[in-house]
Amino acid sequence: MSLFNGLMGNATEANKEEIKKELSRLLMAGEEIGASYKLVRDLIVFTNKRLILVDKQGVTGKKIEYLSLPYKSITHFSVETAGTFDLDAELKIYVSGRATPIAKQFRKDDSIFDIQKTLSELVI
């Protein structure tokens, strides 16, 4: 069911060991993965030091952007739930020094609240 959820744009909790292996070249000494969520091909990874957003681009997904956000640089964030006609839920993360928020869209509200709760625990 998690593959179906991922294809539908719903974030699913990702396997920590697989994510640790995938991000091994990025993680610092002593950095541990707390929670991670897979959204189709992209990842939202919470470590004990930062938030890592992984954006796999292109048809093959070989081009990858790794965006590292120290928790102290996140000034605020918001969750917008899906409506009757607008079926997408959205998470916006505002970072100091950046004019526009980082936005991630979800097809359902369910997983967005888990991500928001984890973000709250690490930022606030």
Results as ranks from 00 to 15, higher is better:
M1V: 07
L3H: 10
F4Y: 13
G6S: 15
L7S: 06
L7T: 04
L7I: 13
L7Y: 03
L7V: 12
M8I: 06
M8Q: 10
N10F: 02
N10V: 11
A11F: 02
A11M: 11
T12N: 13
A14Q: 03
N15I: 05
K16S: 14
K16N: 12
E17D: 15
E18C: 07
I19C: 13
L23N: 10
L26N: 10
L26Y: 09
A29F: 06
A29Y: 04
A29Q: 14
G30F: 05
E31P: 05
E31W: 09
G34Y: 04
G34I: 10
S36Q: 03
K38Y: 01
L39R: 00
V40S: 11
R41M: 11
D42A: 06
L43R: 14
L43T: 00
I44C: 08
I44D: 07
V45C: 12
T47M: 08
T47S: 12
K49V: 08
K49D: 02
K49E: 09
K49R: 14
K49G: 05
R50Y: 07
I52Q: 01
I52Y: 00
L53Y: 00
V54S: 04
D55K: 15
T60C: 14
T60D: 05
K62L: 15
K62Y: 06
K63T: 08
E65L: 13
Y66M: 03
Y66C: 01
L67G: 05
L67T: 13
S68Q: 15
S68C: 10
S68H: 10
L69N: 01
P70N: 04
K72C: 04
K72F: 13
I74A: 00
T75D: 03
F77D: 09
F77N: 00
F77P: 05
S78Q: 09
E80N: 10
A82Y: 05
G83Q: 12
F85P: 02
D86C: 06
D86H: 12
D88K: 15
D88L: 14
L91K: 02
K92W: 05
K92T: 07
I93Q: 00
V95A: 04
S96Y: 04
G97H: 01
G97K: 01
G97C: 00
R98C: 02
P101D: 11
I102E: 13
K104C: 09
Q105R: 10
Q105L: 07
F106M: 05
R107A: 11
K108Q: 14
D109H: 01
D109I: 00
D110A: 14
D110L: 15
S111L: 03
S111Q: 10
I112W: 00
I112H: 06
F113E: 07
F113Q: 08
F113G: 01
F113L: 15
F113S: 06
D114Q: 07
I115K: 12
I115E: 07
I115Q: 07
Q116M: 05
K117M: 12
K117A: 11
T118Y: 06
T118M: 11
L119Y: 02
L119W: 02
S120R: 15
S120N: 09
E121A: 09
L122H: 13
L122G: 02
I124L: 10
